[in-house]
Design a protein around this nucleic acid. Structure first.
Length: 594
RNA sequence: GGGGCCGUAGUUCAGCUUGGUUAGAACGCUGGCCUGUCAAGCCAGAGGUCGCGGGUUCAAAUCCCGUCGGUCCCGCCA
């Protein structure tokens, strides 16, 4: 570089810079050598600018220009000039101008790159992750990372202005029962003992409320050792918040205000608040899931009552076992679905646990269906009415246990929504799902477990029934859903020790166990804990949805593969026996057999 | 733990169903020509452990088994 100083980013040059001398530094996107004149597109984080090397100038500079190759790093001094009308490139922000090179310095060369730096992804994801530094040069990835910064900056601004304090909590903390598998960190100073990385700062943010900080937030990494998905990484980032002296409505309205402001400032999009609120029961009933995609209809309808005594064993059998029958009517879609698509959908349903996927097509000459011959006149009539079946419709059925029916039919609904192009991809549909049950019965463990977490407060009116019918107690909790993806959840917490003890009792955490696992929080509740509540938002998922990406990996600079590895750093890796010894742990090759 | 899809040149893919000359294409790369391109153009050229291991066969990129890796989903993720 010598004594050269960069004067501008490549992407910022416009007509008004014409005649000014500039010094640019960046990477060579492409070089077009016409034998005489040579064009170089120079790229930095801000964009592209065309550099022109004319043959009439300094022959030494021209010789250098002939040597240049893609992804070399160069510095160029030159004069910004206007392009002639015919040579303007409307595809570039800087397309009205170009820089006439007067001096050039090669700052570094580059090997031939393993994949092209282009807007469209055409490389295998493994390769992209191995050469992540190159993948991040691609404008869409670069923009995602810059967008991430803009969003976190806007979040911080909003929360700072609303009286929130950003307070850090430790990453080396204590393993807690319930919830996800912990990542463990061995303690060298206390051999045989382990820290756990936090699944979320839940307990400590509540403790901060007891300390009196009143409004806390943190943009913070959380760690969960569970299997990965397109929207799940072992380490991910939460916008974590907690407030004292608040109700559900207070938390909800702060989040709505923040979301509205952040989306306006970073995307220039005006979203409508307040967001729709839907009780959990309704979400499960109409959509079969607690995070419905409400960008399209195609709602599920429980038609169990019609088939209570049906001769059709597939339906009546499911009901006798305590299950349910749900159907959805794809209006006017009979002609849009091929037999192959129906078969594929059936196969998909089976892969989700269904025994099959019954359907009825309403054709010109009546109902066309493999199951219609099993139905009585009366059943057909009731069915037609219940689902408003008309010519051209196609109806799909799920009959199984309630859980399976919801699981299968909610996904069938999403799949149909996609196939039939019912989803407006431009929409941002925010939704609160509220009134979750506090507890649900876990048949494997033969006990009730917390739906959210064990510090969630029950609705006041349900408190008296907590022992008699624990499954029917609603909680002061709320999930926020965007386009069918859960992007956050929270609750008003229990701030009284007697209620906390009662909840522990009902979920089968014994007094001494509770004391051991959460002892300090229980004790802290006895020292003037204020009423408080909060929420945690999944930053990566929000960014994925706002960036229209299919995976959170595309909004994270250095994500892990589905097996939790990082092809760039080659983590995880083996460590030396000395390191293990110091950490006081022993490695075993495989699961012990028993 | 289970199911689906994928793995062939530097890259993206075709070829595999129905085994049979020297495994193709595009982009990229190298060299040459070319003074207004911007996906530059034209000419020439180099480039392959068909993921890995085993099996069937006269013969395997192709069929079978196993395995590794990537990805999507179920379970799991309070």
């Amino acid at each position: 570089m010598g004594d050269w100083k960069r004067s501008n980013y490549c992407g910022e040059l416009r007509k008004e810079h014409v005649d000014s001398s500039v010094t640019l530094m960046g990477w060579i996107q492409s070089r077009r050598d016409h034998g005489g004149v040579i064009f170089v597109d120079l790229r930095d984080r801000d964009g592209l600018c065309q550099i022109v090397f004319n043959p009439g100038g300094n022959p030494e500079i021209h010789r250098t220009a002939e040597q240049l190759r893609d992804e070399w790093v160069i510095a160029v001094k030159g004069t910004v000039t206007s392009r002639t009308e015919e040579t303007v490139n409307p595809n570039l922000k800087t397309g009205e101008v170009e820089v006439l090179a007067e001096q050039v310095r090669v700052l570094n060369t580059s090997k031939v790159i393993p994949f092209l730096i282009e807007n469209e992804v055409n490389a295998d994801e493994l390769l992209r992750l191995k050469y992540r530094y190159l993948d991040l040069r691609r404008p869409p990835m670069r923009d995602n990372i810059i967008f991430r910064h803009k969003v976190t900056a806007a979040v911080r601004n909003y929360l700072n202005e609303n009286g929130f304090l950003e307070i850090e909590t430790p990453y080396f903390t204590k393993s807690t029962p319930e919830g996800a598998r912990d990542f463990l960190v061995p303690s060298r100073l206390n051999k045989g003992q382990f820290y756990a990385l936090p699944q979320s700062p839940q307990i400590l943010k509540q403790t901060l409320m007891i300390s009196g900080f009143d409004r806390y937030y943190q943009i913070v990494k959380c760690f969960r050792d569970e299997d990965l998905r397109a929207d799940r990484q072992p380490e991910f980032t939460q916008i974590d918040m907690e407030m004292s002296f608040v109700s559900e409505d207070d938390v909800i309205s702060i989040v709505e205000g923040m979301t509205k402001t952040v989306v306006r400032e970073t995307k220039g999009i005006e979203i409508t608040t307040p967001f729709l609120r839907m009780p959990y029961e309704e979400a499960m009933e109409k959509y079969g899931t607690d995070c419905p995609d409400t960008r399209f209809g195609l709602e599920l309808k429980d038609i169990s009552s019609i088939f209570k005594d049906s001769q059709f064993k597939v339906f009546s059998g499911a009901l006798k076992k305590g299950g349910a029958i749900k159907a959805l009517n794809a209006k006017n879609a009979a002609g849009k679905l091929t037999r192959k698509e129906i078969d594929d959908l059936t196969e998909y349903a089976v892969s989700l646990g269904a025994k099959g996927l019954a359907w009825i097509r309403v054709g010109e000459d009546g109902w066309n269906s493999p199951i219609v011959k099993f139905l009585t006149e009366e059943e057909r009539k009731l069915l037609g009415e219940a689902l408003s079946m008309e010519k051209g419709d196609i109806v799909f059925f799920g009959a199984d246990s309630v859980e399976t029916v919801n699981q299968v039919m909610s996904n069938v609904r999403l799949s149909l929504g996609k196939t039939l192009l019912l989803v407006d991809e431009e929409k941002l549909e925010f939704l609160w799902v509220v009134d979750f049950p506090l507890l649900k019965y876990n048949p494997q463990e033969k006990r009730y477990v917390a739906v959210h977490h064990p510090f969630t407060a029950p609705k006041d009116k349900d408190m008296e029934n907590i022992e008699s019918s624990p499954g029917n107690v609603a909680s002061k909790s709320y999930d926020i859903v965007l386009n069918g993806v859960e992007i956050g959840g929270g609750s008003i917490r229990i701030h009284r020790k007697d209620i906390q003890q009662k909840v522990f009792e009902v979920i089968g955490i014994m007094d001494d166990e509770a004391r051991e696992k959460f002892g300090f929080l229980l004790e802290a509740l006895e020292f003037g804990a204020p009423p408080h509540g909060g929420i945690a938002l999944g930053l990566d998922r929000i960014l994925m949805l706002l960036s229209r990406e299919e995976s959170i990996r595309d909004v994270i600079a250095f994500p892990k593969t589905q097996k939790g590895s990082c092809p760039l750093t080659e983590a995880p890796s083996e460590v030396s026996p000395e390191q293990l010894l110091e950490a006081g742990i022993k490695s075993i090759d495989r699961e012990p057999e028993n």
